[in-house]
Amino acid sequence: MADVAFLGLGVMGYPMAGHLRAAGHSVRVYNRTAAKAEAWVEEHGGTSAATPREAAKGAEFVMTCVGNDDDLRAVCTGADGAFAGMEEGAVLVDHTTVSAMVTRDLAAIAAERGLGFVDAPISGGQAGAENGQLSVMCGGEEGAFARAEPIIGAYSKICRRLGETGAGQITKMCNQIAIAGLVQGLSEALHFAQKSGMDGEKVVEVISQGAAGSWQMVNRHKTMLADEYDHGFAVDWMRKDLGICLDTADEIGASLPVTALVDQFYKDVQRMGGGRWDTSSLLKRLTRDQ
């Protein structure tokens, strides 16, 4: 069992930290809103800390799951950041979806301090976090990954190292690119079925068993048909992720025309007041005038 710090108790981090505690690890948590950390301790045990540095002090592993590049820099660097509290040989595992650039910058700082660093973005949504069934895609030095993998196992169904630092973030970008196209295609299919007078549920029952089937179709079609979008991964976060994908595509010379288009469709959803709706709300954009 390990001494672990977990920084960031949002919809993903809160249950992930809980799985670590349930697995028997000693867990200290930090959250920008202290009341959330206190609630976690009351539910799961463990302890909370007032700063990332305090949480990370003496920890063998420090897990981060925050919002964006700036949030990650804030919890890692500075006088009260996690790096300031970590001892040589400790490993920081970052589960945030951020740019490969900030990942490489922070990994370099960690290396200068004798710390390990694994970029380990996650996929599986809130349900995956709550059920301990996340897909974790990792980048970083092999030794640091090998040490961290058993700890990550508390909340993952698959955890793989894809390459050196930044490889995990690049893989997560591939994940988001694929999801964007899938959700738009599913939204159009359901919209088309409804406009044709078909029963969407019956249509999905058949086509989900063939080549059109996908996780999104199986797990989201019912709530989409019911016009319910108050679960899962929010549009605001998806736009953040797609922005990272598109910026990186410009840097490496990749062409992402469908991703760029779907990003604008999500912008439309935001304008409809759906920034906190689930990403499957692309259907809402198509049916808003019905």
Rank of each mutant, 00 (worst) to 15 (best):
L186R: 07
D227S: 12
D94P: 03
L134D: 02
R147E: 10
H221I: 05
L134W: 07
M137F: 13
F83G: 10
I109A: 10
E142R: 15
T279W: 14
S208Y: 00
V269Q: 12
M16R: 12
L182T: 14
I152Y: 01
E130C: 01
D199I: 02
E87M: 04
K36M: 05
L115Q: 11
A146H: 09
K172F: 02
A55R: 09
V235F: 09
W277T: 03
T223R: 15
C174Q: 04
G153C: 05
M12N: 13
Q126G: 00
G200R: 13
Y30F: 15
C174S: 07
G10N: 05
T171W: 08
Q264C: 00
E164A: 15
C138L: 08
T287N: 09
I170A: 13
K172I: 04
E251F: 03
V235L: 10
A148C: 05
I252E: 05
A211L: 12
G46M: 03
V183E: 08
W40R: 11
S123V: 13
G143R: 12
G67D: 11
L20T: 05
E201L: 06
V118L: 05
A108N: 06
Y229P: 04
R21S: 12
A55M: 01
S123G: 11
L182A: 10
A107F: 02
L242A: 09
Q270S: 14
Y155L: 01
R271K: 15
G116E: 07
Q184D: 10
W237F: 15
T97Q: 07
V75M: 09
G210N: 06
V4A: 11
V93C: 03
T103M: 07
H19K: 11
C245F: 12
G81V: 06
A39Q: 14
D70N: 09
V75E: 06
G13T: 02
